[in-house]
């Protein structure tokens, strides 16, 4: 099928402002959007720049805005999106070049919630025991691949560059609800600051955007409740 890709372009060495450029390409309905982008890059315009790696939705490199919604380019098929496809970099991030955005502030926020198991006791000789039910509690939030699609779809994150954002909260959830972890108070101290969890407006964009189907908003609400009930 004939497809028109309208892509937001920005070259930091030449452009003052980002602008749209359209490409007509021939694509199979079962091609991924990433394949379509590669077709443009390889055969039409080598300067088109985007991140990509695994091409099947597990590495999280190619989160971008496709027809207004944050998606992984490798998890959407051309046939499902339609003949007119508008592709932009994610909102709420600084554009480095074309579809490539600056992920550093995103990872800084991720690091701020101490995304690692904290346990002050000496580990036993065997594994630490955990019941299957306790393991199930935080199962969903272990799926996060740090692609940034949730944070980039969040209106408070767009307008407030200091907001910690849903991705960091999801990763805090993964540890706060892990029965082996003892660092909840340290994480909650971060999340209860003014740019923490309470900047969430329950817009649910993050839940829609998550390519791993993590119920992001639900996880955020669970953290708020834990903070309230445990005072």
């Amino acid at each position: 099928m004939q497809v028109t890709l309208k892509i937001l372009r920005f070259d930091p060495e030449k452009d003052k402002k980002a602008h749209f450029k359209s490409y007509e390409i021939e694509a199979d309905p079962l091609d991924r959007i990433l394949d379509a982008l590669n077709t443009v890059k390889w055969y039409k315009d080598g300067t088109l720049t985007f991140r990509r790696s695994c091409a099947h939705g597990v590495c999280g490199s190619d989160a971008m805005r496709i027809n207004g919604r944050n998606r992984l380019a490798c998890k959407e098929l051309v046939g499902d999106i339609g003949k007119k496809i508008t592709i932009e970099p994610m909102l709420g991030f600084r554009i480095l070049k074309d579809l490539v955005v600056d992920m550093e502030p995103f990872f800084e926020k991720y690091r701020s919630i101490k995304p690692y198991l904290i346990n002050y006791e000496d580990p036993p000789a065997t594994e630490r025991f955990q019941s299957a039910e306790d393991r199930e509690i935080f199962d969903e939030t272990t799926k996060c691949i740090l692609c940034g699609a949730c944070s980039g779809s969040c209106p408070p994150f767009w307008s407030n560059s200091e907001f910690i954002g849903p991705a960091a909260i999801v990763n805090a959830h993964r540890f706060i609800f892990d029965s082996r972890d003892q660092g909840s108070d340290e994480r909650i101290a971060v999340l209860s600051q003014s740019e923490g969890v309470f900047r969430c407006r329950t817009v649910y964009n993050c839940t829609d955007a998550c390519p791993r189907e993590i119920p992001v908003t639900k996880a955020i609400e669970q953290i708020k409740r834990v903070m309230l009930y445990n005072r």
């Binding site: 000789a125 065997t126 594994e127 025991f129 955990q130 019941s131 299957a132 393991r135 935080f138 199962d139």
Partner: peptide, 21 residues
């Protein structure tokens, strides 16, 4: 190494007794 990974926090699936499945 598996035990070490578990101590680092890796969320393995568990047996009914709570061991690594």
């Amino acid at each position: 190494r598996i035990i070490e990974l578990e101590h680092m926090g890796l969320p393995f699936n568990r047996t009914p007794e709570g061991k690594i499945d």
